[in-house]
Design a protein around this nucleic acid. Sequence first.
RNA 1: CGGGGCGUAGCGCAGCCUGGUAGCGCAUCUGCUUUGGGAGCAGAGGGUCGCAGGUUCAAAUCCUGCCGCCCCGACCA
Length: 437
Amino acid sequence: MRLSRYFMPTLREAPSDAQIVSHQLMIRAGMIRQEAAGIYAWLPLGLAVLKKIEQVVREEMNRAGAVEVLMPTLQLADLWRESGRYDDYGEEMLRIKDRHDRDLLYGPTAEEVITDIFRSYIKSYKDLPKNLYNIQWKFRDERRPRFGVMRGREFLMKDAYSFDIDEAAARRSYNRMFLAYLNIFARLGLKAIPVRADTGPIGGDLSHEFIILAETGESEVFAHRDLVEMGAPGPDIDWDGDLAPLVAQRTALYAASDEMHDAARFEKEVPEAGRMSARGIEVGHIFYFGEKYSRPMKAFVTGPDGKDVPVQMGSYGVGVSRLVAGIIEASHDEAGIIWPDSVAPFGVVVINLRPGDAAVDAVAEQAYAALSGHDPLYDDSDQRPGAKFAALDLVGIPWQLIVGPKGVADGVVELKRRATGERQTLPLDAALKAITG
RNA sequence: CGGGGCGUAGCGCAGCCUGGUAGCGCAUCUGCUUUGGGAGCAGAGGGUCGCAGGUUCAAAUCCUGCCGCCCCGACCA
């Protein structure tokens, strides 16, 4: 992509509305534009990152055995009357009427729709387990949207729903998601801590929030240091095997968000050297809720004994649009955003410091062409070098390949790694090799 | 929903208290000079001062109502 044809409206100053660093940087980098409180348009750079994150989530969900569907944003109120949630949900639900005066709503979540789909087709335990997910826009009419896309009213969420014949099987589904989530966040360059979450009236131990560490995070987490160091299980585990030990390893160690924190237990269970408290952002929430929807909505399956039983369900959410902000909170410096390679809007930017200079143009074009498989941005804009450096540091593309008249005269270019600031001057071939691996 | 604050050019702000017909920086456009970390000079364009009423000879400024946005709190499977 040539910058001269792209649309990347960067700003030197942040609007005064933006209070937290990710919001400021997203606006300054030209990623989003606010249309209303908690509602944003995604500009090309923001959309590129959003799609990258979405794809990582998709790949890891598929790997863990989930199957993608796409449910509508608008849902029929009658489904929510079946589950009993239409009246319970309150003001957060955006309610709409169509031309026939039918009650619709903009989905804040999709348990009802997925349960309706499930019950229409699946009748036997032999067709279980199933895990269906979608990545779709949700709307929750928050009383106080804030912090940009961190807490918007409209947001992109991956929501998965598991269906099993009994609790033991549901636990296996839960474990798959638990581990898949750790892999997702690891691939996004994040350190994530699973903390036990309130399960509400259903009880049990099957609910976890995933909190990513970021100094500017909103909530505080307390955890055993070993849990953070343990990292993700990786993609090559046996997804159909017994995952309980891997999960147990990670749930045995103390981890709690501020609301669930028990200081006495923390001190008792965790040796002083292992105690860690940090700021974080909740980006995922998984839980098992059994028959909460299947029973009222009559999603029954026939078991091996010929008896119909309500299917055991769980749901698993990842805030995809929130992750864009979360990653920035976790990865930025004074100059701007530092994208992990896995979600960077471009893999590399070739910076032409003197467009119009035939020799410089030739080298820059050559580099741009050679990098075509690495999602390159070519800064061919007619700006001064300082302005280019500032803007490109701001948008955080991982590699900067700088082509200027001085270097070209000496047969070299400069390669800069955004994350470390490390620069090396070297021949073009060597620079290309360093980027393409 | 309780409390607080703010709406003046694309962005950041001043002007409001004490009414007299709108200004600064950045950005934009033109020209020249520049060109390795957000250039300099010269010139130019752009604002029904959130909206609607009211007071007044006169309202960005005072009064009333409404709308929008932000922050703190409460809330947030």
